[in-house]
Computed example of a mutant assay.
Amino acid sequence: MLTSSRQCRCCGATFAQLLSLSCDRPDQCPEDLVVQDNSAVLAQTGDVLTDDFCRIGDLRFVRAVLAIPLADSDGQEFILGTWANLGVEDFDAYLDLLDMQETESLGSRPAWLANAIPPDNGTPVACMLHMRPEGQYPELQVSEPNNPLAPLQNQGAQLEELFELLHTYGHDLASLVYDS
Score class of each variant (00 low, 15 high):
residue 62 V to I: 13
residue 84 A to W: 10
residue 50 T to S: 04
residue 73 S to G: 13
residue 124 P to I: 03
residue 77 E to T: 09
residue 24 D to N: 14
residue 108 S to Y: 01
residue 62 V to Q: 08
residue 82 T to H: 00
residue 71 A to F: 07
residue 60 R to D: 00
residue 75 G to F: 11
residue 91 F to H: 09
residue 114 A to S: 02
residue 21 L to H: 07
residue 39 S to F: 03
residue 73 S to P: 14
residue 64 A to N: 04
residue 97 L to M: 09
residue 95 L to Q: 07
residue 80 L to G: 00
residue 20 S to L: 07
residue 53 F to S: 05
residue 47 D to A: 12
residue 119 P to Y: 13
residue 78 F to E: 05
residue 30 P to E: 00
residue 40 A to P: 08
residue 76 Q to E: 15
residue 29 C to D: 09
residue 68 I to S: 03
residue 64 A to S: 14
residue 121 N to F: 04
residue 18 L to M: 07
residue 44 Q to D: 14
residue 18 L to Y: 11
residue 43 A to W: 13
residue 108 S to W: 02
residue 50 T to K: 08
residue 22 S to Q: 09
residue 57 G to M: 00
residue 30 P to Y: 06
residue 41 V to A: 07
residue 121 N to H: 03
residue 79 I to S: 10
residue 70 L to E: 12
residue 39 S to I: 08
residue 70 L to Q: 10
residue 49 L to C: 15
residue 109 R to W: 11
residue 55 R to P: 04
residue 28 Q to G: 10
residue 96 D to S: 02
residue 19 L to S: 13
residue 96 D to C: 04
residue 83 W to C: 12
residue 25 R to S: 13
residue 122 G to W: 08
residue 23 C to M: 09
residue 82 T to Q: 13
residue 76 Q to G: 06
residue 76 Q to N: 05
residue 61 F to C: 04
residue 29 C to I: 11
residue 107 G to Y: 05
residue 114 A to E: 05
residue 19 L to N: 01
residue 78 F to H: 11
residue 94 Y to F: 14
residue 32 D to I: 02
residue 91 F to E: 08
residue 100 M to L: 13
residue 83 W to H: 14
residue 99 D to Y: 05
